[in-house]
């Protein structure tokens, strides 16, 4: 059975980075909505979700820096 390490090292670098970039674009746009509205329910949804997406993107970059570089 492939270990997580093996799985990660065999995943194409560009694909992971692309997913991370997409997540970060979505996260930034989601959180940027809070600049224009302070509706409590929107704050409750956009703030944690946007932050999570941005952090997932940053983690994708970290993964790329550690395992993705040849």
């Amino acid at each position: 059975m492939a270990s997580l390490g093996n799985l990660l090292t065999t995943m194409p670098y560009a694909r992971v980075i692309r997913c991370g970039v997409t997540a970060q674009i979505a996260g930034v746009l989601l959180m940027a909505a809070l600049l224009f509205t302070k509706m409590p329910l929107l704050v409750l949804v956009c703030l944690p979700l946007g932050a999570l997406l941005i952090l997932v993107g940053a983690l994708a970059w970290v993964w790329g820096a550690i395992w993705g570089c040849e």
Partner: peptide, 25 residues
């Protein structure tokens, strides 16, 4: 560019947004 675009700018912006929304709330 990847370091700047994915590691630095979004994370700094996220910190700024957290401070801004905390202040707004």
């Amino acid at each position: 560019l990847a370091f700047l675009a994915m590691g630095v700018v979004p994370c700094l912006w996220l910190l700024g947004m957290l401070g801004y929304t905390d202040h707004a709330m």
